[in-house]
Write a protein that binds this DNA or RNA. Structure first.
Ligand code: SF4
Ligand code: SF4
Lengths: 137, 137
DNA sequence: GCAAAATACTATATCTAAGTAGCATTTAAA
DNA sequence: TTTAAATGCTACTTAGATATAGTATTTTGC
């Protein structure tokens, strides 16, 4: 019922970068602005880079830029890249998956709720978050 | 997005007990039936007892019985007793809570989704789960 | 009263996510 | 070509949830 810290950080970092999507961001600058531990932030950005969301350039004048348009980067992409979505499959109550023919009363409700959760994350892009000038980083 | 193991165990144990709600269950029996570690199960049941969901009786012939009618024990009660619900408040994306006047696009969607999540857990009782004879413990 | 059978408590061990440290590698300006 | 400034990799540490072990306490039948 809660995203991992790593996912939350990834979303915060990318949202911050989305304010100026064309620019190249150095880790050092992001660390200053977002107050995230040096190596932890770098690890997250390396992951996002390998997952195809951003591009990293090494060496002097290196940094991170978006690999895709920010309107095409959805929250579900970011969550997938950091913590994965597998654990949200199966029965949320922890039972061995029951037969679909005779589900409990909760099952019927939860099917639509889970669909709504997934839908929300799949439909919201970095552009949607960025519309709000009030976000506190 | 996932319940804690402890919550899942609590739900499994109570659902099992709900099959015969009047009977007194000894920990030893539940351990055999549900294949949960001795001390871990006992700890969970002690917690549920202190939280007013079940009653424990010590000593020889002791065990655990329901303190309330099973149709009045909702999933939200069990989750509250074991892991609490606090972590699900605040911004699910990990931002400092923004002003409600100018929320991001995700906020509007998530308000209704979260309400549906909470509603599902608050409306489903042990009786509802127990209606399904197919549940695998 | 005593022993058996049950729960309660406290301390310890294990596992995984979170966070930190140090060194290696890459790149381009000088 | 050297060197500064950036990212990448591997190992270690920390914290919290999960799980186990051992002992204490309670209750009842005898
Ligand atoms: S029927 Fe109920 S217990 Fe079974 S998998 Fe669905 S939600 Fe879980
Ligand atoms: S407006 Fe968006 S970022 Fe701010 S609290 Fe709501 S969901 Fe989170």
């Amino acid at each position: 019922m809660k995203l991992s810290n790593t996912s939350e950080y990834a979303i915060r970092i990318l949202s911050f970068m989305a304010r100026n999507p064309e620019r190249k961001y150095a880790a050092k600058y992001l660390i200053e602005q977002l107050k995230i531990s040096d190596k932890y932030l770098r690890r997250i950005l390396t992951t996002l880079s390998k997952e195809g969301i951003i591009t990293s350039s090494q060496g002097r004048e290196g940094g991170y830029t978006f690999q895709k348009k920010i309107q095409d980067i959805f929250l579900s992409d970011i969550i997938d890249a950091t913590e994965g979505m597998e654990k949200y499959l199966g029965c949320v109550l922890g039972f061995k998956e029951c037969s679909d023919e005779n589900p409990c009363a909760f099952h019927r409700q939860w099917v639509t709720t889970r669909a709504k959760i997934v839908h929300d994350f799949q439909e919201t892009s970095l552009t949607d978050l960025n519309l709000n000038a009030n976000i506190k980083f």
